[in-house]
């Protein structure tokens, strides 16, 4: 699965990069986005839901979150 590591970026930079990454995916493609803080997680989740991207969430440690996205 293709992955995008945004753990070193805070919001809204993380949101911008996540959106650009999802835009680059093909329809139906699944990928994993890594985020490093809850603020980024909230704003990326909200943005991708608004874009009707399918989401699943994984919590990997205190400051490491993963979103599985399917475009």
């Amino acid at each position: 699965m293709i992955e995008c590591d945004l753990t070193d970026l805070i919001c809204p930079l993380s949101k911008m990069k996540a959106t650009q990454f999802v835009d680059s995916l093909s329809d139906g493609q699944t990928a994993k986005i890594w985020l490093g803080d809850t603020e980024s997680l909230k704003s990326v989740t909200r943005e991708l839901k608004a874009r009707q991207v399918k989401l699943a969430f994984e919590h990997n440690g205190q400051n490491r979150f993963a979103l599985i996205v399917t475009k």
Binding site: D8, L9, I10, C11, P12, L13, S14, K15, M16, E39, K42, S43
Partner: peptide, 23 residues
């Protein structure tokens, strides 16, 4: 763009560039 700067996404973006470990 940024909930921390509700009507000023550009300010939020610069804030993130200055504050992100990567940038």
């Amino acid at each position: 763009l940024c909930p921390l700067f509700p009507t000023e996404g550009a300010r939020g973006l610069v804030n993130a560039l200055i504050g992100s470990p990567k940038t």
